[in-house]
Amino acid sequence: MQDDLRIALYQPDIAGNTGTILRLAACLGLGVDIIEPAGFDLSDRALKRAGMDYIEMAALTRHVDWAAFEEKRNADGRRLVLLSTRAATVYTRFIFEKGDTLLFGRESAGVPDHVHESADARLLIPMKNGARSLNVAVSAAMVAGEAIRQIG
């Protein structure tokens, strides 16, 4: 695995995006954490269609809620790196480390304040003025790619 780099999805809303991220992670050797409840059944057809046959290859861990995820993350000593439109640090100016967990919020609402405050770092993908947000799977690919490049 890419030095145990992980992607975490906070209560994802869209099965197709989650499937795409699972496929990305399987191909790049990254782990994925899904923090429930998800906005869809994890056996959803759209999830399987987007992930194709890579879902079985993905190192997926499901967490019943935020508290369970945090308990596991803290026990493992992982740094939590949140991607947020409310952040100030651009992701390409951040120094990623082995073992980082890249956290992405819900497509519809991001993450609540208590999750935002729990992050060790908050990063921004800069966008053109007037643009609201990127697709979460695109964001995950961009940031995971930069983290992998840095970690080597």
Score class of each variant (00 low, 15 high):
Asp113His: 14
Leu102Pro: 06
Leu124Val: 08
Leu134Lys: 04
His114Glu: 09
Gln150Ala: 01
Arg93Leu: 15
Glu71Ile: 12
Glu107Asn: 06
His63Arg: 06
Leu124Asp: 11
Ile34Phe: 00
Tyr54Glu: 06
Arg122Trp: 10
Ala121Lys: 11
Gln11Asn: 01
Arg23Gly: 00
Leu103Pro: 04
Ala88Cys: 15
His63Asn: 02
Thr85His: 03
Asp3Gly: 15
Arg149Gln: 06
Gly99Pro: 14
Ala121Arg: 13
Gly19Met: 00
Ile148Ser: 08
Ile7Arg: 02
Gly16Trp: 01
Ile95Glu: 15
Ser43Asn: 15
Asp100Cys: 00
Tyr10Leu: 05
Ala88Arg: 15
Lys98Asp: 09
Leu60Gly: 02
Ala131Lys: 14
Ala109Val: 12
Lys128Met: 15
Met52Tyr: 03
Ser133Arg: 04
Gly29Lys: 00
Arg45Ser: 13
Tyr10Ile: 00
Leu9Ser: 00
Phe40Val: 00
Asp65Tyr: 04
Ala141Asn: 14
Ser139Thr: 04
Gly110Gln: 02
Arg78Leu: 03
Met1Cys: 09
Arg45Ile: 03
Met52Gln: 07
Val136Ala: 07
Ala88Pro: 12
Leu9Asn: 10
Ala15Leu: 01
Gly16Ile: 01
Gly16Ala: 09
Ile151Tyr: 00
Gln150Leu: 05
Thr101Ser: 08
Asp13Ser: 01
Leu83Cys: 11
Val90Asp: 12
Leu60Asp: 05
Glu56Arg: 09
Met1Ala: 06
Ile34Cys: 04
Ile21Asp: 08
Asn135Tyr: 03
Ala15Lys: 02
Ala140Lys: 00
Ala59Lys: 14
Glu70Leu: 12
Asp65Gln: 00
Lys72Tyr: 12
Gly39Lys: 02
Lys128Ala: 14
Asp13Val: 01
Ala140Phe: 01
Asp65Gly: 00
Thr101Ala: 07
Ile148Met: 14
Glu70Pro: 06
Ile148Val: 01
Gln2Ile: 13
Cys27Asp: 14
Gly16Cys: 08
Arg122Met: 02
Phe94Gly: 02
Gly16Leu: 03
Phe69Glu: 00
Asn74Arg: 14
Pro12Met: 10
Leu28Phe: 13
Tyr91Thr: 00
His63Phe: 13
Arg62Pro: 05
His114Trp: 15
Met1Lys: 12
Glu146Met: 01
Ala147His: 11
Cys27Val: 09
Asp113Phe: 14
Leu103Cys: 08
Asn129Arg: 10
Leu83Ala: 14
Arg106Glu: 02
Ala67Cys: 14
Tyr91Arg: 05
Ile125Gln: 09
Phe94Ser: 05
Trp66Tyr: 09
Asp3His: 15
Asp41Leu: 03
Gly99Tyr: 13
Leu103Met: 06
Gln150Glu: 08
Lys48Gln: 05
Thr101Cys: 11
Ala75Trp: 02
Leu134Gln: 06
Val90Tyr: 14
Pro126Ile: 03
Met52Arg: 06
Tyr54Asp: 04
Glu36Gln: 13
Gln11Thr: 07
Arg23Ala: 01
Leu5Thr: 03
Gly110Tyr: 06
Ala46Leu: 12
Thr89Gln: 12
Glu97Ile: 08
Ile125Val: 03
Ala140Arg: 04
Cys27His: 11
Lys98Met: 09
Phe96Met: 05
Leu83Val: 09
Ala119Trp: 10
Asn17Ala: 07
Ile7Asn: 07
Glu56His: 15
Arg78Phe: 04
Lys128His: 12
Phe69Ile: 00
Gln11Phe: 10
Leu80Gly: 03
Thr20Lys: 14
His116Ile: 12
Pro12Leu: 05
Gly130Ser: 03
Val64Lys: 15
Ile55Glu: 13
